[in-house]
Design a protein around this nucleic acid. Structure first.
Lengths: 111, 111
DNA sequence: TATTCATGTGAACAGAGATTCATATGTTAA
DNA sequence: TTAACATATGAATCTCTGTTCACATGAATA
């Protein structure tokens, strides 16, 4: 016998043990968020604590529109959260996974 | 006073504590390797042990050229290694960081 | 050495994504 | 309600990158 092994019928040739193709796509999507300089800088910036958009722009020395566009992506990916405070929007890291993932990356680089 | 704080003169406005802009770019470059479905599948495939190109192609159900191109990128990034064995090239994960990083990603997704 | 199998690679094409520009939305203060 | 500030967003542009196609390279075998 040599038939389907994935119970969900979603398989890249029964190989990738127990992991559906969708799950791997989601993984790729997640890592995409870390795969851009601007977004990494934003995430890294927020490790120092929550900040509003203007502060982030100043820190990164980038124009507000570019930053806002990336903030939106990060928020959609649920890597950051936001709340309004008067005229300003305060952004912050959603959870500790972000720090952990970045830390793992740094570790690999400094091998 | 409020001048340069990074000793190397490489700063995104002294913010990103102790981390040079280059270092953050390297991080982004690293995560780019995980940010594509094909590459993630290859990496995940190799978690099951070393494989030659044909096996990987079969597993992913992708044509050989596409896979080879991605293998080259992964090798350049030092996430995988390779050795020749007769006509075949055997690819394998370079170290455990790959597994760790993927595991972190999965953990975040399954939150 | 000619052939076949396994893999690598350059060029071309297509699609995705990042930045900019202009402008819209939302909030506070005058 | 008007003005000023803070942020969001759509469209256009430009760049980057993944796949395909055709072919090159390398190794084993007849």
């Amino acid at each position: 016998m040599h038939t389907e092994s994935c119970s969900d019928g979603n398989s890249i040739r029964h190989l990738i043990s127990n992991v559906s193709e969708d799950e791997l796509s989601d993984l790729a999507e997640l890592f995409k968020m870390f795969a851009d300089s601007t977004r990494i800088k934003i995430l890294y910036d927020l490790i120092n604590g929550e900040k509003n958009v203007t502060e982030i722009c100043d820190d990164l020395e980038m124009n507000q529109s570019a930053v806002s566009h990336q903030l939106k992506l990060l928020k959609t990916a649920k890597l950051i959260g936001a709340r309004r405070e008067g005229k300003q929007m305060i952004y912050f890291l959603a959870d500790d996974h972000v720090k952990t993932i970045i830390a793992m990356g740094k570790e690999h680089i400094e091998e």
